[in-house]
Design a protein around this nucleic acid. Structure first.
Length: 196
DNA sequence: TAGGCGATGACCT
DNA sequence: GGTCATCGCCTAC
């Protein structure tokens, strides 16, 4: 299928991130939920229009793209490449596996399953801010980095993406089946009504 | 330079 | 289940 090479790549990358560890400022999470964004071909992606903010998504893969949403929350994305396509994967949720005390201190004593549930909360638990934008996630010395690739892929479910107002019906949200840390699906209030 | 909007989350009813 | 807080970024003028 030559029409959508980017989409296949980024979804495959998203799949490979599930179950993988992500380390941020002394806290380690196991990624349980992600969303794929197809770059300049995807109207829901920040990289759909190429600007100074999204420029980093057009760069080399495995870099961290951080943006602020609603003026409050930070969201962490993994640029998956290939270069010049602007594809990235939003890390939505994770299970804290190390650094609980630090994560809890940042999150303020919420229940265990909510420590890194939702993209804003995950970034907060990991201490990720705009200052971390551009970090090379494969650099073993970086304060934010990815763990080793997953050897045995977990059971994965897919569905429509959360909170996006465009292309909301593309099933590019992926999560580990049955994981309690996966956030609830909520459609964007701005998204058009779903097709029947 | 100003106005509008967003890949959210917490709290209230 | 619904509403609101809050600010950086993009777009239009």
């Amino acid at each position: 299928m030559r029409s959508e090479p980017t989409t296949v790549d980024v979804v495959e990358a998203a799949r490979s991130l599930l179950g993988r560890h992500l380390v941020g400022h002394g806290v380690t999470v196991r990624i349980t939920e992600v969303e794929a964004y197809g770059g300049h071909l995807d109207p829901a992606s920040h990289a759909y229009t190429r600007t100074a903010r999204s420029e980093i998504m057009y760069g080399p893969p495995w870099r961290l793209y951080v943006y602020r949403s609603y003026g409050i929350h930070h969201c962490a994305n993994v640029v998956t490449g290939p270069t010049e396509q602007g594809a990235a994967v939003l890390v939505r949720s994770g299970e804290v596996v190390d650094g609980h005390a630090r994560a809890r201190a940042r999150r303020g004593g919420v229940p265990e399953t909510r420590l890194a549930r939702g993209p804003g909360n995950l970034a907060q638990a990991l201490g990720i801010s705009l200052a971390d934008k551009g970090t090379d996630l494969l650099d073993a010395d970086a304060v934010v980095r990815l763990g080793a690739p997953v050897v045995e892929p977990p059971a994965i479910s897919t569905g429509p993406r959360v909170g996006v107002s465009k292309a909301a019906d593309v099933p590019w949200r992926l999560w580990i089946t049955g994981d309690p840390t996966v956030s609830a699906y909520r459609r964007s209030p701005r998204a058009p009504a779903p097709p029947r």
